[in-house]
Amino acid sequence: MEDLQLMVSGLANGCVYGLVALGFVLIYKATEQVNFAQGDMMMLGAFVAIGLGNESHAGLPFWLACAGAVFAMGAVGMAMERTLLRPLFGQSQIAVVILTIAFGFVLRFAAGAIWGHDPLVMDNPVAGAHVAFGQVVLGADEIAVIAVTVLLTGLLFLFFSRTKLGIAMQAASQNQLAAYYMGIPVKRIHGITWMLAGVTAAVAGILFAAKGSVDPSAGFLGIKAFAAAVIGGFGSLPGALLGGLIIGLVEPFAARYVAAGYAQIAPYAVLILVLIFRPHGLVAQVRGKKL
């Protein structure tokens, strides 16, 4: 029974990792850039939701606060693309990596200056509620997290595989010049992608803040989410979720069954194993570069 509870809480954690990983993958899939600030965007989304929804702050109704956070982060994502990424259009991936790392620092500082450095929990309708299946008692928040994640991943997957815009986004990443020639508005597509990444970050942030507490350094969770994205294979949406779930599951079980101190290592150990034996992830997308 204990294992089952561990599994559900692990899955719920894994969903948050998976959602942040989804943000990376979204951007990578459509722009071939890597957003190292995705974890910090999640942190910011959580704080915006808390700032709007909590009694101690603006005190708006829960759903309104969520909508507000999603909207605000979409705007932040788009603004980031506009002001930071677009000037770097056509420059190396490494420049984008370093830029987003640095911008993550700035976001962390801004969040700390606005909301302080104490951990905050988001008020939410399912806080403290439990659902009992026979002997197994599960947190309602954990079930909600899993449900929302599955839904969002499904929607994004359909978006990329079925809609014209989604397919255009993939084309734009694979050959920018050719995409231009085909009349795909590459720059606008990049803007939309970053907006989507912001929205995903907001959802992840809300889930994270509802089931635990958030402080400005929560963005470091992004590193685990990165591991998740790589384990899944960097270009695959279901892969990102899978990777997130694997990391989410590895953590509690390692903490339970492996000697203390070794548990924190487990997610990274899994990552390094995957990188050594399946360097391009479980759902591989990368082949050799064409000559």
């Binding site: 790589v230 960097f234 924190q264 990274y268 390094i272 990188l275 050594i276």
Partner: peptide, 28 residues
């Protein structure tokens, strides 16, 4: 040796994982 096949972002992430491990290894 194990990561030489990786480049770009994969290498960045592998090395990032490494630095996360080091703190714990020092404690262990």
């Amino acid at each position: 040796v194990p990561v030489f096949r990786l480049h770009g972002i994969y290498l960045a992430i592998a090395t990032l994982a490494l630095t996360m491990l080091v703190e714990d290894i020092i404690v262990l």
